[in-house]
Every structure is written in structure tokens, then in C-alpha cells.
């Protein structure tokens, strides 16, 4: 089941979403931040942005702060691992 991270009302109102879908492109484990037609992918192993563009600076600080919290990271990794049994976050050899 797709995981939609529960964001604050203000972020939702501004149309921000953070999700892990059941079918993602086969690469490193990642979470996708979405706003309108634009999206950013964040690597769940390194917590780095996976693409050069769009510019991560466009993401509000509030959302970046949420993403840097330990609990958020643990939850995202847990959700990914449940959906992608063959490519778990903890499998470092795939990095």
C-alpha cells in the first residue's frame, strides 16, 4: 500500500506531498517529494537528493527539517522495506 507521509496542514495546503509508491523506478531505495508536476527523489541510504534538478532549494525548510528527523527516516525506511522486500534499505551491498 502506497505510503503518504502525514505532512502538516500548511504543507498540504501548499500542495506538498512525500510518498513511497508500490511501483517505483528500480534504483536505490528512495522517497519522492512531490509538488504539482515537479518531484524530488531522496536516497534512503545516503539521504542525498538523487537528481541534479529540480533544485532542492525549492523545497520549504519545514519539509527538509521533517526529512532530517530520526523518526521520519526510520519510518520511511520501514515503509520502503515492507514494499520492496528484494531491495531493502539496509542492504548496503547494493549501494
Amino acid at each position: 500500500m502506497a505510503f503518504n507521509f502525514p505532512l502538516s496542514k500548511s504543507l498540504r495546503k501548499a500542495r506538498w506531498k512525500m510518498k513511497i509508491r508500490d511501483k517505483e523506478i528500480c534504483e536505490h531505495p528512495h522517497v519522492t517529494i512531490i509538488r504539482g508536476t515537479v518531484f524530488w527523489r531522496v536516497n534512503l541510504r545516503t539521504w542525498e537528493f538523487m537528481d541534479d534538478d529540480p533544485d532542492p532549494a525549492l523545497i520549504p525548510k519545514e519539509l527538509i527539517k521533517i526529512l532530517s528527523q530520526k523518526e521520519t527516516r526510520q519510518q520511511l525506511c520501514r515503509e520502503w522495506d515492507q514494499m520492496y522486500l528484494n531491495n531493502p534499505v539496509s542492504d548496503e551491498s547494493k549501494e
Binding site: M1, A2, K19, R21, D22, K23, E24, G36
Partner: peptide, 18 residues
Amino acid sequence: DSGLTVQLGDYEAAVEAI
């Protein structure tokens, strides 16, 4: 998601992956 996601009930797929 403005054309970025396909929803099939509780299941979601990234358009990029399709």
C-alpha cells in the same frame, strides 16, 4: 499527483517507472 502517479485502489505506481 498532476500526472506523476497512477492510482489503482490502495496501490500506486510512479509514472516514471511505467
